[in-house]
């Protein structure tokens, strides 16, 4: 069966295909895992997060976390906006599969509004807290390291 014959019916597959095509576009997020096993996620300055960005970030987190749940530090500082779909995705079950806990670092007015809004409106199913510094965030996240 050739590549052209494949029929992608599910949303995930179509999304995956789109992301594969866009993979050449430089990502707006830096994601890496430190020695303690905590994944650090940072957005570039003035980033607007869409659903595609959110899915890619979670998949990348899953990849570097070896498919297991890992604690994530998300630095919201550079964010300019997050779409409603992206917020719902971050607070959905797909994210909870690969993220054991999330510490949101918001050291700017915009990022704080975003963080609070996310915590207050979207109510994710995993432990999430808002911190003003990464140190504090790491202190809290240590308990989720396996």
């Amino acid at each position: 069966m050739g590549h052209r014959d494949l029929e992608f019916k599910s949303m995930e597959w179509r999304m995956w295909l789109k992301m594969s095509i866009e993979s050449t576009v430089e990502p707006i997020t830096e994601i890496e895992k430190d020695d303690s096993g905590v994944v650090h996620m940072r957005y570039r300055s003035n980033s607007s997060v869409t659903l595609e960005t959110a899915i890619r970030n979670i998949q990348e987190t899953a990849r570097i976390g070896g498919g297991k749940k890992v604690p994530v530090v998300v630095n919201l500082t550079g964010l300019k906006s997050v779409s409603r779909k992206a917020r719902r995705y971050y607070s959905g079950e797909e994210t909870a599969k690969y993220v054991s806990a999330a510490a949101l670092v918001a050291d700017s007015p915009v990022s704080r509004v975003l963080g609070n809004f996310f915590l207050g409106i979207n109510k994710p199913p995993i432990p999430i807290r808002l911190f003003i510094s990464e140190e504090k965030a790491m202190e809290w996240l240590v308990q989720f390291i396996e």
Binding site: K80, R84, P109, V110
Partner: peptide, 13 residues
């Protein structure tokens, strides 16, 4: 990215 932007973004959201 100041407080005003934060308020504007909050209103938008």
């Amino acid at each position: 990215g100041d407080a005003f932007d934060a308020v504007a973004m909050g209103i938008n959201m």
